[in-house]
Computed example of a mutant assay.
Amino acid sequence: MKKALCVISGGMDSTLCAYLAKKEGYEIIALHLDYNQRTMNKERECFNKICKELNIQTKYILDVSFIASIGGNSLTDYALEIPKEKLHEVEVPNTYVPFRNGIFLSIAGAIAEKEKCESIFIGVVQEDSSGYPDCSEKFIQKASEFINEGTTNSCKVQIKTPLVHLNKSQIVALALKENVALEYTWSCYEKEDKACGKCDSCLLRLRGFKEANAKDPIVYE
């Protein structure tokens, strides 16, 4: 059976990508990365639930806490305040973790080579996000090039980003259509018990559900 390495954060987008990979007939190798973000424990809990839901047998949970040591973002640096109450649709907010997807995809490339995966699925969204530069289609194309250039000739990996040009309401609608266990996903940047409902990620998620005329199954403050 063909294999896909799915980078699963525990969020709605990456979870939907894993469901789509399974629908395409891939055996899924799941990758989760802990980088001492504020909601690390909740995200890991969601990841494990999603893996159980999809009957994923091979999974990696890796400690990449050096990202927090680099700092420069409010997800790992408690001295910085997470922006609330407004979506940053032009200016890149301080929730951007410098080159995070570049780091994640480097690791994913290594595991994909080891596990003999032909595809890497990652839930980047360019059209309806906070403007993170490492979520663009152009960046993913470059990442695909460097992974294939830096691995053995027998390793030919395609990075798949099925959501890159969708907005959040389209993502919610597709997730509902595919019967994704959305109750096991988490988007909040700050809280682990009840989602704050005010950070960029919560606002995007809530807007997506509203525009899709659907109710979000997770609990908000």
Rank of each mutant, 00 (worst) to 15 (best):
K2Y: 12
K3P: 04
L5G: 01
C6K: 04
G11N: 02
M12C: 11
S14P: 00
T15Y: 01
K22H: 08
K23N: 14
E27M: 09
I28Y: 04
I29N: 06
A30V: 06
T39D: 04
M40A: 15
K42W: 02
F47H: 08
N48C: 12
C51W: 01
C51P: 00
L54V: 09
N55P: 02
N55Q: 12
N55G: 10
K59D: 10
K59Q: 14
K59I: 11
L62K: 13
S69E: 15
G71D: 08
G71N: 08
N73L: 06
S74G: 14
L80A: 06
L80H: 04
K84L: 14
K86E: 15
K86D: 10
L87Y: 04
H88G: 00
H88Q: 08
V90Q: 13
E91K: 10
E91R: 09
V92K: 04
V92Q: 03
P93I: 10
P93N: 11
P93W: 04
N94I: 10
N94K: 06
N94C: 06
P98W: 01
N101E: 05
I103R: 00
I103H: 00
F104R: 01
L105G: 01
L105S: 05
E113D: 15
K114R: 14
E115F: 07
C117L: 02
C117A: 11
E118K: 14
E118S: 15
E118F: 10
S119Y: 09
E127F: 09
D128P: 03
D128L: 06
D128Y: 05
S129G: 05
D134R: 00
C135E: 00
S136A: 07
E137M: 12
I140Y: 03
K142G: 13
A143W: 00
I147R: 03
N148S: 02
G150I: 05
T152P: 01
N153T: 15
K156G: 11
V164A: 09
H165G: 07
N167I: 13
S169L: 07
Q170I: 10
A173C: 08
L174M: 14
V180S: 02
T185Y: 07
Y189I: 08
E190Q: 12
K191F: 11
K191C: 14
E192G: 13
K194M: 13
K194E: 15
G197I: 07
K198C: 09
C199T: 01
D200C: 07
D200V: 06
C202I: 11
L203C: 00
L203R: 00
L204S: 07
G208Q: 11
F209S: 09
K210G: 07
K210S: 13
N213C: 09
P217V: 07
I218A: 12
I218N: 15
I218R: 11
